[in-house]
């Protein structure tokens, strides 16, 4: 049915010319001039009755006058349906389209066709609106926990260590999002602390509450799964952080490894009004370790 309607709009009425919008505009003006010349009395009367919300008897209006209004309505729809950008409802073209829809509705002329064309145009602009990307800023604070590998080097050999940190990461994100998808970049200041403990059967080395600060930044893409704009997606975080673990005495040295950690992760987000709740679960690309976080934020 939609295809038939689209065809109907594109073909227009028998005397609407094929071509660009200029020709259609000429056609509209020509029909408007015919109305002004031949049906001025009816035109004034109809506009007055609509304005005053009076009852309208369609039988009082000649069929030719109704046909001319319908042709203009069809021409306007032909222009609008070709639009590649979302034209706001307040634009002169869409306002004019609505005026002719109202006139034809009151004239009770081809009502079913008029409504179907109207729905098609509305859907066309809704689809364009849905696909339109807009920029969005968010502020957030995550509670984050992350681990990384370190090595304790001593006179008798090397011992693997795992450093476990937890803390907060306040930050900002910017996204380009439409109704379905979001592409974003975010960054937050990592303010965490943690510790390390060696395998006591090998060597005893314990450090606790050691500050680990840095930057965590990511890029990602997401998909909105519901009308409430709950979302899920993938992200590629990078952490640059510094944590200075003390070297134990006796010729031992702790090597914290690379300060730059790259990850791949999944995230999800649930909006509650302008606020939101989010989670992240990211695995390091080069280590068998993990970062997870959950946080709250505000969308501007």
């Amino acid at each position: 049915m939609k295809k038939i309607l689209l065809l109907f709009i594109l073909i227009g009425t028998s005397f609407l010319s094929w071509g660009n919008d200029t020709n259609i505009v000429v056609e509209i003006k020509k029909n408007q001039k015919i109305i002004q010349t031949n049906f001025l009395k009816e035109e004034i009367k109809l506009k007055k009755l609509i304005k005053e919300s009076e009852t309208i008897d369609p039988e009082e209006f000649p069929v030719e006058y109704k046909k001319l209004n319908f042709k203009i309505f069809a021409s306007l729809s032909k222009i609008l349906v070709k639009s590649k950008t979302a034209v706001p409802e307040s634009s002169p073209q869409r306002k004019l389209f609505l005026i002719y829809r109202e006139k034809l509705s009151n004239l009770e002329y081809e009502e079913s066709k008029v409504e179907k064309v109207y729905d098609l145009i509305q859907n066309h602009f809704k689809n364009l609106e849905d696909k339109k990307y807009i920029g969005t800023f968010r502020l957030f604070v995550d509670y984050v926990s992350w681990q990384y590998n370190a090595v304790l080097k001593g006179p008798l050999g090397e011992y693997d260590l795992v450093v476990t940190n937890k803390g907060i990461c306040p930050g900002l994100s910017y996204s380009q999002e439409n109704k379905f998808f979001t592409f974003f970049a975010d960054a937050c200041y990592l303010f965490t602390s943690g510790g390390v403990s060696s395998d006591p059967s090998q060597v005893t080395y314990i450090q606790d509450n050691v500050l680990a600060t840095g930057i965590k930044t990511s890029i990602g893409l997401g998909y909105f799964v519901s009308s409430s704009r709950s979302e899920i997606g993938l992200k590629l975080p990078i952490i640059y952080a510094i944590q200075n673990l003390e070297n134990p005495p006796g010729g031992y040295e702790v090597q914290e490894g690379n300060d730059l950690l790259t990850m791949i992760g999944v995230y999800s987000r649930w909006p509650i009004g302008s606020y939101f709740f989010q989670t992240e679960f990211s695995k390091y690309l080069t280590q068998d370790q993990l970062l997870w976080s959950l946080g709250f934020g505000y969308k501007f």
Partner: peptide, 14 residues
């Protein structure tokens, strides 16, 4: 399931 243990003197792999 990733299980992480937190403790002042405990830091073990997940």
């Amino acid at each position: 399931y990733n299980t992480r243990v937190f403790g002042p003197e405990t830091s073990v792999p997940d």
